[in-house]
């Protein structure tokens, strides 16, 4: 009984962590669910890549479960619904077997389709190009490159599991195309076009969450996430630098 409850709690915690929750929230959720079902001596340790929970069941038995967490895309709607469900579990204490389908339902909720993501990429890239001072020609090129970027990203995700490498390749491709577009006289300032597009690659969620983790005292998780964000930014910069060196813009 306690084992099933713990499985549910840790699965929910993992789904929240993957959707972009801070570590403190994940630990808090797991602790609350376990204590709602009568466990005491609840020990939860979470970093961005792993969750470990040990509880003492109402029968006095110590139970431990761990989960390895792989990185995944941020999903605020899922996080929101999981949070609501965990609050409801804590206040109503429903039967575990009846909660399981609800969790599965939340995990199966729709995400935006590929077309919508392309559209959003185009919009965001054009917006950021305008934001950093690009003119309307730059905005149009930037929007088109935003779509290219999204297509390359989803193609690369299937082939390589290495996030760093795919960011490097994609930012290099975007850099090359931006510089060629200016050479062909289509865009005015390749810098503005590239900035608009690299804003899409920089992992804002990891950066902001890492700071919030650090300030709540979850140093390990915070430093891991911060490192990830900084290394990603370096790879993105390196990709653009490669594009500039290949086309001879620099030097």
């Amino acid at each position: 009984m306690t084992n099933e409850m713990l499985t549910l709690a840790i699965e929910m915690g993992r789904a929240m962590l993957k959707s972009g929750a801070e570590v403190a929230r994940v630990e808090d959720t797991i602790t609350r669910i376990c204590s709602a079902y009568g466990c005491d001596e609840i020990n939860v340790f979470t970093i961005t890549s792993s969750i470990v929970v040990t509880v003492r069941s109402p029968e006095g038995e110590m139970i431990t479960q761990t989960r390895r967490v792989s990185s995944s895309s941020v999903n605020m709607t899922r996080l929101d619904h999981l949070n609501d469900l965990s609050r409801r579990i804590c206040s109503e204490k429903p039967d575990i077997a009846s909660v399981r389908p609800e969790v599965n339902k939340i995990l199966r909720e729709p995400v935006y389709g590929f077309g919508m993501l392309c559209l959003a990429s185009a919009g965001a890239a054009a917006s950021f190009t305008a934001f950093f001072g690009g003119n309307w020609q730059d905005m149009i090129i930037s929007a088109l490159l935003g779509i290219v970027l999204r297509c390359c990203m989803s193609a690369l995700e299937k082939v390589v599991s290495n996030n760093m490498f795919s960011n490097y390749v994609v930012s290099c491709i975007v850099g090359l195309l931006a510089i060629f577009s200016v050479r062909l006289g289509l865009g005015a300032d390749y810098g503005k076009i590239i900035i608009g597009n690299i804003m899409l690659l920089i992992s804002g969620a990891a950066f902001f969450n890492s700071l919030r983790d650090i300030i709540t005292g979850d140093m390990m998780a915070g430093i891991l996430r911060l490192c990830e964000a900084v290394v990603l930014a370096v790879f993105i910069a390196a990709g653009v630098a490669t594009a500039m060196l290949l086309t001879g813009v620099g030097v």
Partner: peptide, 19 residues
Amino acid sequence: IEILAAGGGTLFFAIFYNM
């Protein structure tokens, strides 16, 4: 222009986060 672009950028970014 900057303020409008910031709003647009944020809105489209929020779509990546499935809001």
